[in-house]
Computed example of a mutant assay.
Amino acid sequence: MAESRLVPIKLDAYKPLREIVFETLREAIINGKLEPGERLMEIQLAEEMGVSRTPVREAIRKLELEGFVVMIPRKGAYVAGISLKDITDVFEVRASLEALAAGLAAERSTSEEIENLERSLVAYSEQTNQQNIDGIVETDTDFHDLLYKASRNERLLTIITHLREIIQRVRTVSLSQPGRSKDAIEEHRQIVDAIAERNVELAQTLAREHIYNAENIMLNSLKGEKKEHD
Protein backbone atom coordinates (compact mmCIF):
# COMPACT_ATOMS: atom_id res chain seq x y z
CA MET A 1 0.00 0.00 0.00
CA ALA A 2 1.53 3.26 -1.11
CA GLU A 3 -0.14 5.43 1.53
CA SER A 4 -1.80 5.11 4.91
CA ARG A 5 -5.57 4.81 4.59
CA LEU A 6 -6.25 3.41 8.04
CA VAL A 7 -6.24 5.31 11.31
CA PRO A 8 -5.17 4.07 14.74
CA ILE A 9 -8.04 2.08 16.21
CA LYS A 10 -9.95 3.17 19.30
CA LEU A 11 -10.34 0.58 22.02
CA ASP A 12 -13.83 -0.55 22.95
CA ALA A 13 -14.28 -1.88 26.48
CA TYR A 14 -16.94 -4.30 25.25
CA LYS A 15 -15.11 -5.79 22.26
CA PRO A 16 -11.92 -7.87 21.98
CA LEU A 17 -9.07 -6.16 20.13
CA ARG A 18 -9.11 -8.76 17.34
CA GLU A 19 -12.79 -7.99 16.70
CA ILE A 20 -12.12 -4.25 16.44
CA VAL A 21 -9.26 -4.87 14.01
CA PHE A 22 -11.45 -7.21 11.96
CA GLU A 23 -14.27 -4.65 11.74
CA THR A 24 -11.83 -1.88 10.80
CA LEU A 25 -10.32 -3.90 7.96
CA ARG A 26 -13.70 -5.13 6.74
CA GLU A 27 -15.02 -1.57 6.60
CA ALA A 28 -11.92 -0.43 4.71
CA ILE A 29 -12.53 -3.16 2.11
CA ILE A 30 -16.24 -2.38 1.82
CA ASN A 31 -15.55 1.34 1.41
CA GLY A 32 -12.84 0.74 -1.18
CA LYS A 33 -9.97 2.09 0.91
CA LEU A 34 -8.38 -1.33 0.51
CA GLU A 35 -8.94 -2.17 -3.15
CA PRO A 36 -9.68 -5.52 -4.84
CA GLY A 37 -6.45 -7.31 -5.71
CA GLU A 38 -4.42 -5.34 -3.17
CA ARG A 39 -1.97 -7.29 -1.02
CA LEU A 40 -2.50 -7.07 2.73
CA MET A 41 0.82 -6.65 4.52
CA GLU A 42 0.51 -7.58 8.18
CA ILE A 43 3.34 -5.35 9.40
CA GLN A 44 2.11 -2.27 7.57
CA LEU A 45 -1.51 -2.76 8.62
CA ALA A 46 -0.43 -3.26 12.22
CA GLU A 47 1.63 -0.05 12.16
CA GLU A 48 -1.21 1.97 10.65
CA MET A 49 -3.70 0.78 13.26
CA GLY A 50 -1.26 0.92 16.17
CA VAL A 51 -1.53 -2.75 17.11
CA SER A 52 0.62 -5.87 17.00
CA ARG A 53 0.61 -8.34 14.11
CA THR A 54 -1.34 -11.00 16.03
CA PRO A 55 -4.83 -9.39 15.90
CA VAL A 56 -4.17 -8.39 12.27
CA ARG A 57 -3.30 -11.99 11.37
CA GLU A 58 -6.45 -13.24 13.13
CA ALA A 59 -8.58 -10.62 11.38
CA ILE A 60 -7.23 -11.58 7.96
CA ARG A 61 -8.08 -15.23 8.60
CA LYS A 62 -11.64 -14.28 9.53
CA LEU A 63 -11.91 -12.01 6.48
CA GLU A 64 -10.86 -14.97 4.33
CA LEU A 65 -13.67 -17.09 5.82
CA GLU A 66 -16.19 -14.35 4.98
CA GLY A 67 -14.94 -14.02 1.40
CA PHE A 68 -13.32 -10.59 1.70
CA VAL A 69 -9.77 -11.94 1.41
CA VAL A 70 -8.12 -14.65 -0.66
CA MET A 71 -4.93 -16.43 0.37
CA ILE A 72 -2.49 -17.17 -2.45
CA PRO A 73 0.15 -19.83 -1.62
CA ARG A 74 3.68 -18.41 -1.22
CA LYS A 75 2.39 -14.90 -1.97
CA GLY A 76 0.13 -13.90 0.89
CA ALA A 77 -3.28 -12.35 1.52
CA TYR A 78 -5.08 -10.21 -1.06
CA VAL A 79 -8.36 -8.29 -1.04
CA ALA A 80 -10.89 -10.43 -2.92
CA GLY A 81 -12.25 -9.07 -6.16
CA ILE A 82 -15.91 -8.81 -7.06
CA SER A 83 -16.83 -10.98 -10.03
CA LEU A 84 -19.39 -10.05 -12.65
CA LYS A 85 -21.42 -13.04 -11.46
CA ASP A 86 -21.39 -11.66 -7.90
CA ILE A 87 -22.60 -8.30 -9.17
CA THR A 88 -25.40 -9.60 -11.37
CA ASP A 89 -26.56 -12.02 -8.66
CA VAL A 90 -26.73 -9.27 -6.05
CA PHE A 91 -28.52 -6.83 -8.34
CA GLU A 92 -31.09 -9.48 -9.30
CA VAL A 93 -31.90 -10.02 -5.65
CA ARG A 94 -31.82 -6.31 -4.80
CA ALA A 95 -34.16 -5.36 -7.64
CA SER A 96 -36.84 -7.69 -6.26
CA LEU A 97 -36.26 -6.75 -2.63
CA GLU A 98 -36.23 -3.00 -3.32
CA ALA A 99 -39.46 -3.26 -5.33
CA LEU A 100 -41.06 -5.24 -2.50
CA ALA A 101 -39.86 -2.74 0.12
CA ALA A 102 -41.09 0.28 -1.86
CA GLY A 103 -44.47 -1.31 -2.50
CA LEU A 104 -44.93 -2.21 1.15
CA ALA A 105 -43.78 1.26 2.21
CA ALA A 106 -46.42 2.79 -0.06
CA GLU A 107 -49.00 0.72 1.79
CA ARG A 108 -47.70 0.89 5.35
CA SER A 109 -45.39 3.87 5.95
CA THR A 110 -46.37 6.58 8.43
CA SER A 111 -46.20 10.30 7.69
CA GLU A 112 -43.12 10.46 9.94
CA GLU A 113 -41.36 7.77 7.90
CA ILE A 114 -42.13 9.61 4.68
CA GLU A 115 -40.79 12.79 6.27
CA ASN A 116 -37.57 10.96 7.16
CA LEU A 117 -37.21 9.75 3.56
CA GLU A 118 -37.66 13.32 2.32
CA ARG A 119 -35.08 14.59 4.80
CA SER A 120 -32.63 11.97 3.56
CA LEU A 121 -33.00 13.39 0.05
CA VAL A 122 -31.84 16.78 1.34
CA ALA A 123 -28.83 15.23 3.09
CA TYR A 124 -27.99 13.27 -0.08
CA SER A 125 -28.13 16.45 -2.20
CA GLU A 126 -25.82 18.27 0.22
CA GLN A 127 -23.19 15.51 0.05
CA THR A 128 -23.46 15.34 -3.75
CA ASN A 129 -22.98 19.11 -4.06
CA GLN A 130 -19.86 18.78 -1.90
CA GLN A 131 -18.70 15.83 -4.05
CA ASN A 132 -18.02 13.92 -0.84
CA ILE A 133 -18.06 10.27 -1.91
CA ASP A 134 -17.98 8.93 1.66
CA GLY A 135 -20.93 11.15 2.54
CA ILE A 136 -22.76 10.18 -0.66
CA VAL A 137 -22.42 6.47 0.10
CA GLU A 138 -23.50 7.03 3.71
CA THR A 139 -26.62 9.03 2.82
CA ASP A 140 -27.51 6.58 0.03
CA THR A 141 -27.27 3.75 2.56
CA ASP A 142 -29.42 5.71 5.03
CA PHE A 143 -32.11 6.23 2.38
CA HIS A 144 -32.38 2.53 1.59
CA ASP A 145 -32.32 1.61 5.29
CA LEU A 146 -35.26 3.98 5.87
CA LEU A 147 -37.08 2.43 2.92
CA TYR A 148 -36.64 -1.10 4.29
CA LYS A 149 -37.83 -0.03 7.74
CA ALA A 150 -40.88 1.68 6.25
CA SER A 151 -41.84 -1.65 4.68
CA ARG A 152 -42.59 -2.96 8.19
CA ASN A 153 -41.36 -6.42 7.21
CA GLU A 154 -38.81 -7.83 9.64
CA ARG A 155 -37.89 -10.76 7.38
CA LEU A 156 -37.08 -8.37 4.57
CA LEU A 157 -34.80 -6.41 6.88
CA THR A 158 -33.04 -9.62 7.90
CA ILE A 159 -32.41 -10.68 4.29
CA ILE A 160 -31.05 -7.25 3.36
CA THR A 161 -28.74 -7.30 6.40
CA HIS A 162 -27.16 -10.56 5.22
CA LEU A 163 -26.37 -8.94 1.87
CA ARG A 164 -25.18 -5.66 3.37
CA GLU A 165 -21.42 -6.13 2.97
CA ILE A 166 -21.41 -6.92 -0.75
CA ILE A 167 -24.12 -4.32 -1.39
CA GLN A 168 -21.90 -1.69 0.22
CA ARG A 169 -18.91 -2.68 -1.93
CA VAL A 170 -21.00 -2.49 -5.08
CA ARG A 171 -22.70 0.74 -3.95
CA THR A 172 -19.38 2.51 -3.42
CA VAL A 173 -18.14 1.67 -6.93
CA SER A 174 -21.46 2.59 -8.57
CA LEU A 175 -21.82 5.95 -6.81
CA SER A 176 -18.22 6.86 -7.62
CA GLN A 177 -19.08 7.04 -11.32
CA PRO A 178 -19.45 10.59 -12.72
CA GLY A 179 -23.00 11.88 -12.52
CA ARG A 180 -24.44 8.77 -10.88
CA SER A 181 -25.21 10.35 -7.50
CA LYS A 182 -27.22 13.18 -9.10
CA ASP A 183 -29.25 10.68 -11.11
CA ALA A 184 -29.74 8.55 -7.99
CA ILE A 185 -31.14 11.54 -6.07
CA GLU A 186 -33.80 12.10 -8.73
CA GLU A 187 -34.63 8.39 -8.76
CA HIS A 188 -34.95 8.43 -4.96
CA ARG A 189 -37.19 11.50 -5.15
CA GLN A 190 -39.55 9.79 -7.58
CA ILE A 191 -39.74 6.72 -5.33
CA VAL A 192 -40.58 8.87 -2.30
CA ASP A 193 -43.27 10.74 -4.26
CA ALA A 194 -44.87 7.44 -5.29
CA ILE A 195 -44.80 6.21 -1.67
CA ALA A 196 -46.31 9.47 -0.43
CA GLU A 197 -49.07 9.12 -3.03
CA ARG A 198 -49.67 5.52 -1.87
CA ASN A 199 -49.11 4.32 -5.43
CA VAL A 200 -47.90 0.78 -4.77
CA GLU A 201 -47.38 -0.29 -8.38
CA LEU A 202 -45.48 2.87 -9.36
CA ALA A 203 -43.27 2.67 -6.25
CA GLN A 204 -42.37 -0.92 -7.13
CA THR A 205 -41.58 -0.06 -10.75
CA LEU A 206 -39.44 2.96 -9.86
CA ALA A 207 -37.51 1.05 -7.17
CA ARG A 208 -36.78 -1.79 -9.59
CA GLU A 209 -35.65 0.65 -12.30
CA HIS A 210 -33.42 2.43 -9.78
CA ILE A 211 -31.53 -0.79 -9.06
CA TYR A 212 -31.28 -1.71 -12.76
CA ASN A 213 -29.83 1.75 -13.50
CA ALA A 214 -27.21 1.26 -10.77
CA GLU A 215 -26.36 -2.16 -12.20
CA ASN A 216 -25.88 -0.77 -15.72
CA ILE A 217 -23.59 1.96 -14.41
CA MET A 218 -21.57 -0.61 -12.48
CA LEU A 219 -21.24 -3.07 -15.36
CA ASN A 220 -20.32 -0.33 -17.86
CA SER A 221 -17.64 0.87 -15.48
CA LEU A 222 -16.16 -2.62 -15.15
CA LYS A 223 -16.26 -3.15 -18.92
CA GLY A 224 -14.42 0.14 -19.39
CA GLU A 225 -11.74 -0.93 -16.91
CA LYS A 226 -11.38 -4.27 -18.70
CA LYS A 227 -10.83 -2.55 -22.05
CA GLU A 228 -8.13 -0.36 -20.51
CA HIS A 229 -6.27 -3.44 -19.33
CA ASP A 230 -6.70 -5.43 -22.56
Rank of each mutant, 00 (worst) to 15 (best):
P8D: 08
N116V: 14
N116C: 10
R61K: 14
R74P: 01
A95G: 04
S120M: 11
E66D: 14
L156K: 06
A46L: 10
R5W: 09
S109R: 04
D183F: 04
K226V: 14
D142T: 13
K226E: 15
A214P: 01
K85D: 09
E115W: 13
E118V: 08
T141H: 12
I60N: 09
L63A: 08
I185G: 01
A207F: 06
I60C: 13
H162N: 10
L121F: 10
I20R: 13
D86I: 03
V192C: 04
R171N: 12
I87T: 07
A95T: 08
V90D: 09
E138M: 11
T110S: 15
A106L: 08
L40P: 02
E165P: 09
I43Y: 07
I20Y: 01
S83E: 10
R61H: 14
D86P: 03
E154L: 15
H162P: 01
E107Y: 03
M41E: 12
L45A: 04
E215A: 07
V51M: 08
L163Y: 05
D142S: 12
L97C: 04
I159D: 00
I211M: 09
E19W: 10
L25T: 02
I133K: 12
H144Y: 10
K15R: 15
F143D: 00
A203P: 01
R94V: 03
R39D: 03
L34A: 02
R61C: 09
L157A: 09
V69T: 08
L156Q: 07
E47Q: 15
N132Y: 01
I29D: 02
V90M: 09
G32Y: 03
H188D: 11
L84N: 07
R26L: 12
G224D: 06
R18P: 04
L34G: 00
K75N: 06
E38P: 07
G81S: 12
P73H: 05
R198F: 08
L117Q: 10
S125A: 15
I133A: 09
Y148L: 14
G32Q: 05
I159N: 03
N116G: 07
R119N: 15
G179R: 05
E48W: 15
D183V: 05
N132Q: 05
M1K: 10
N199H: 08
R108E: 05
L121Y: 10
E112C: 02
K62M: 15
V51L: 09
T128H: 06
L163W: 04
E48I: 09
L97T: 03
Q44C: 08
L156V: 08
L104G: 01
M49P: 04
P8G: 07
V7A: 14
D145E: 12
R169F: 04
K223P: 01
T54Q: 13
G81T: 12
G224E: 08
R171C: 08
T24L: 07
R152E: 14
A46I: 05
K10R: 12
Y78C: 11
L17T: 08
I60L: 15
K182L: 12
T54P: 01
G76F: 01
I136T: 00
A194P: 02
E38M: 13
E112S: 12
N129W: 12
Q190K: 11
E186N: 05
A101Y: 03
K15E: 15
A150T: 06
H210Y: 01
